[in-house]
Amino acid sequence: MADPGFPGRHTTTTQVTQTSVSPQFRFDKSYIHTIPGMIKIACIVFNLLGFISIQVSAFSHHSRGSYFSSIAMTGFWFTVLMLAAYLFHVCEKFYKIPWLKIEMYFCALWTVLYLFAACFAATFASGAYKVGALFGFIAMCLYGYDAFLKYNAVRRGEIAQGVRIVEQRQQQTTVTIA
């Protein structure tokens, strides 16, 4: 008689991951036509417009303006560097670096920082600050959406560039005890 605590069938699931990347740097402008590429370009534009709006104000030296300008310029330079990394396939060459997580955390942090910066600018009695706040709120929404896209990509196990194929294989084993 078979042991009632031992199942007659046993299923084993194995997961096979295959990553395909190109180890060479190359310029590929097709990234600009993707949604993340368009978001990066829009973030660059709105960071720059918000920075210029604050800097042309007579009150650009005020602490609110300095804070907004710091957030805008840091966001601008980080986004420019990441856009260049994608355009030249740096992310694909160094695919072991968690690029999506780095971008996700940065975009989430910049969403919060832009919320504060744009609110501070909107409550200041200057027309240029209000225009800067508008650009800041738009940049905040763009960074938030980008963080959401990156979060979903990280959950799916994707890599920043290249292809990762994940296969699930199941094997059933039947045990008979004589």
Rank of each mutant, 00 (worst) to 15 (best):
M1E: 11
A2N: 11
P4V: 10
G5E: 14
G5L: 15
F6W: 08
F6A: 15
R9V: 11
H10E: 12
T12S: 12
T13N: 13
T14R: 14
T14Q: 15
Q15Y: 14
T17E: 12
S20T: 15
P23E: 05
Q24V: 15
F25V: 03
R26M: 08
F27K: 06
K29E: 13
K29G: 11
K29D: 10
S30T: 09
Y31C: 07
H33F: 13
T34V: 05
I35D: 06
P36S: 03
I39H: 07
I41H: 01
C43G: 13
I44Y: 00
V45N: 03
L49K: 01
L49T: 01
L49P: 03
G50I: 03
I52V: 15
S53R: 00
I54P: 02
F59Q: 15
F59P: 05
H61P: 07
H62V: 13
H62N: 12
H62W: 12
S63V: 13
S63W: 15
G65K: 00
G65H: 04
S69C: 06
S69T: 06
I71P: 00
I71S: 01
I71D: 00
M73Q: 09
M73C: 10
W77P: 02
W77K: 07
F78C: 07
V80C: 07
V80K: 06
V80F: 07
L81Q: 09
L81D: 09
L81S: 13
L83A: 05
L83T: 10
L87H: 03
F88M: 10
H89S: 08
H89W: 03
V90L: 12
V90C: 08
C91D: 14
E92V: 06
E92I: 01
K93V: 15
K93N: 09
K96I: 08
I97P: 03
I97V: 15
I97H: 10
P98W: 04
P98A: 05
W99I: 04
W99E: 15
M104P: 00
M104H: 04
A108Q: 01
T111Y: 01
V112P: 01
V112E: 07
Y114V: 00
Y114N: 10
L115Y: 08
L115H: 05
F116I: 01
A117N: 02
A117C: 12
A117W: 01
C119P: 02
C119Q: 09
F120Q: 04
F120M: 11
A121W: 00
A121L: 02
A122K: 03
T123S: 13
A125E: 15
A125M: 09
A125W: 07
G127A: 14
A128Y: 10
A128W: 11
Y129N: 08
A133N: 02
A133F: 02
A133L: 02
A133Q: 00
L134N: 04
F137A: 02
F137I: 05
M140I: 05
L142D: 00
Y143I: 01
Y145I: 04
Y145D: 07
D146E: 14
A147S: 07
F148H: 14
L149F: 03
L149D: 03
K150I: 03
N152F: 12
N152Y: 11
A153D: 04
R156S: 11
G157P: 05
G157L: 03
E158P: 03
I159Y: 00
A160K: 04
G162D: 02
V163H: 14
V166A: 08
Q170P: 06
Q170D: 13
Q171A: 11
T174A: 10
T174Q: 10
T176P: 02
I177Q: 14
A178S: 15
